[in-house]
Simulated scan of single mutants.
Amino acid sequence: MPFWGSESVFPFAVSHSFDGIISVSCIQAWYYFTHQSDRWHLKALVGAVMLTDTIHQGLITHTVYTYTITNWGNVAFLGELVQTLLIEVLFNGLTTVMVQCFLATRIWRLSDRKIWLIVIIVLLVFGEFGVNLAYTIISLRFDTFAQLAHLEGLSLATNALAAAGDIVIAASLCTILHRSRTGFHRSDTIISKLIVFSVNTGLLTSLCALASLVSILAWPNTFIYIAFFFCIGRLYTNSLLATLNARKKIRELSDGIESTSGNNLSLNSMGRTKNGKISSSRQQQNISIKIDTQKEFATDSGNDMEKGSAVKVGSGYMGGEPEYESA
């Protein structure tokens, strides 16, 4: 996030308290590479996201070290700009754009390739990255925080586009999944779980972007918003890894739902009364209707096939190849 404002106290202690999230990212990345069998393009995406996130963390560490250790007690230096503080904006933007492109691809498949929806999302995603890039290039010419006040408009634009992009992506996923309901208990239960999962994985990034935007508007002469901005990229990293690592768990949960393949549904035979209305009676002979349903889960590796019941969850909701269920 762009930095601008007066020479106020820099809240490094606040922002650095959030850096414990990086340990969660590392654990999730380790779990992904040791437990998931995805195709090379997904593994490359995860590797690239972890690389940019690690560089981002290194840049923040260097910035904090420069202000708090190298220049300990040098109050005048607090008004000076450290180059790594500006460069981290670019790597934060790279992490964000990669994860949002992954989510946009998922929406593209789920929405049956609705071009107008993807155009809106792509404009927001690349608009935010473009502003980040422009801010980084321009800000590297400055030497003090006071000079960054001229980039107030870019700062607000970055936060506004980030918040808007997250909200549109989360709303699109929830709407598409909700419209995919079929009326079958098993299928609708799976969809409900996916909706909740989509909201949970996108909630933190949306709230963090909004908090950064609100803090800039409410306290324009402080650096409070930096505490939130430092976390945005890392939250996107965790969102991506959580989405990929949760696929197997969601399928296992769906297998435990009561309506499974080959269930026998016992119905009372129906007769007609004298007035022609259909009636049912326990004394009448039961009719056993066997419902055979089958679904195929084509996982990202293309090797795992499962059987169960009934609904097209969406092409590539969790990434990779399309996943189908048929009723």
Rank of each mutant, 00 (worst) to 15 (best):
P2M: 03
W4Y: 15
V9S: 15
D19T: 03
I22V: 12
S23A: 15
I27E: 12
Q28P: 03
A29V: 11
T34V: 12
R39C: 10
W40L: 13
K43T: 05
L45P: 15
V46P: 06
G47H: 15
D53T: 15
Q57L: 13
L59C: 10
T61P: 03
Y65W: 13
Y67G: 02
Y67E: 01
T70W: 05
G73I: 01
N74P: 07
V75H: 14
V75Q: 13
L78C: 12
G79E: 08
G79V: 07
E80L: 01
L81K: 11
T84V: 02
L86C: 00
E88C: 00
F91S: 10
N92R: 10
N92F: 06
V97R: 02
F102M: 06
I107C: 09
I107S: 03
L110G: 01
S111E: 11
S111Y: 14
R113H: 02
R113A: 01
I115C: 12
I115D: 08
V119G: 06
I121K: 01
I121Q: 05
V122M: 11
L124K: 06
V125W: 02
G127D: 11
G127K: 14
F129Q: 06
N132V: 09
N132C: 15
T136H: 00
I138L: 01
T144G: 03
F145D: 02
Q147R: 11
L151C: 07
E152P: 00
E152T: 04
G153F: 10
L154K: 04
L154A: 11
L154N: 01
L154P: 03
T158Y: 09
L161T: 13
D166F: 09
V168R: 06
A170R: 04
T175A: 00
L177F: 05
R179G: 05
F184S: 13
S187Y: 14
I190R: 13
S192D: 07
K193G: 11
V199Q: 00
T201E: 10
G202P: 02
L203F: 08
L204V: 11
T205M: 07
S206K: 01
L207D: 01
C208K: 07
A209N: 07
L210G: 07
S212H: 07
V214G: 02
S215L: 10
A218D: 14
W219Q: 12
P220W: 10
F223Q: 03
Y225G: 05
I226S: 09
I226K: 09
F230E: 10
I232H: 05
G233S: 14
R234I: 06
Y236D: 09
L244I: 15
N245L: 13
K248L: 06
K249L: 03
D255E: 13
E258Q: 11
S259Q: 08
T260V: 08
S261K: 14
S261R: 15
G262T: 13
N263W: 06
N264R: 15
S269G: 14
N275F: 05
S279T: 08
S280V: 09
S280G: 00
R282E: 01
Q285D: 05
S288M: 11
I291Y: 09
Q294S: 13
K295Q: 12
T299D: 11
D300V: 02
D304F: 11
A310S: 12
G314T: 08
P322D: 00
P322Y: 02
